[in-house]
Design a protein around this nucleic acid. Structure first.
Lengths: 172, 172
DNA sequence: GGGCTCCATGTGATTTTATAACATCGATGA
DNA sequence: TCATCGATGTTATAAAATCACATGGAGCCC
């Protein structure tokens, strides 16, 4: 079934988002962007919410709500599912995180502040997830919607496959 | 495929998949296509699997696995979750049905037999679902994948919004 | 200050969705 | 005959998400 020999990537050392980068900076800019957005819009960026976003920003992969809950509990917050779900719902509702439907899991938004329809590339070997922009109204789906008279409000676009670094390992 | 354009008032005709059509025919052709495909590929189109597909074909909306399970039970099949999940897994694995990730639910394939990347339009008001074709490698996502070196194997494309018939009702 | 509302947080309990683990049975074929 | 395989069935459990309700602080009006 699952092919052996492809250890999960270590998020602290692996190229993430499929490209090497200064990861500490991701977290800092993510939090800063969230603060900016919240103060702009009069939203409460409370401690749980901030911590939940930090948790997501630590990784370039999607975390299940219960993973987030564990870490929130360890950080001294409540320990029941609604604690995590409420924080995540807030982040998602305000464009600071996204839900990956295919994985029933959540990831910090990689382009906070900009209005966008996200699209995701999910590596089935190392579980890393990269965010790209989708253009739902263009392309085949947009055309089908126009022809059918369907009004698109929101799109889920997720590609599953193999990321470059896992493909390289597989070749070797 | 089903051709539109029936005069209204035929009880077998209801606007589904956002367009009026002879629905009884959907079921019949769906089952026929499945039979063809299975015999072609040496797959066992067993009674539970056939019934599960029939159940999905009855509706142009996505059914949860437990809805399907209820109906299978009523039809005399086993009553435990794996009964439904296994039948649904078979249908999905062989292109006879799709899972709508956004809804954690399943729908019969509208284009059985043809290889395709499905895309769905989900009405949030009446829960109807229409299937269209996606062209994942074209468009923004395909380009992002090529640039990143990501190999796409499978895509989830789901648009949530309002179908024409609900939009009309809302206007009124 | 007192009382009010609003909203965020916390809890226990439950529902919904999905899998694990194992027994049986019929078809196939050595 | 009997070994194997795949399909079906069962019980039990895991994983994901929500419900219902209590508490507590921030802001506000009087």
């Amino acid at each position: 079934m699952t092919s052996p020999g492809h250890p999960k990537a270590d998020p602290a050392t692996e190229p993430v988002g499929f490209a090497a980068h200064d990861h500490g900076r991701c977290v800092a800019t993510g939090i800063a962007a969230a603060e900016a957005r919240c103060s702009e819009q009069g939203l409460q960026f409370t401690p749980v919410r901030r911590k939940a976003l930090e948790i997501l920003l630590q990784e370039h992969r999607a975390l299940g709500a219960y993973d987030v809950l564990d870490r929130l509990r360890n950080a001294g917050f409540g320990s029941q599912p609604p604690v995590a779900y409420r924080a995540l719902d807030f982040l998602v509702a305000n464009g600071l995180a996204h839900k990956i439907e295919r994985l029933n899991a959540f990831i910090a938004c990689a382009h906070p502040g900009t209005r966008h329809s996200p699209a995701f590339m999910i590596c089935r070997l190392c579980d890393s997830v990269a965010e790209a922009h989708a253009t739902p109204t263009r392309g085949a789906l947009g055309q089908a919607a126009r022809e059918a008279g369907f009004r698109i409000e929101r799109t889920v676009v997720e590609a599953e496959g193999v990321c470059p670094s896992c493909a390289e390992k597989a070749d070797a």
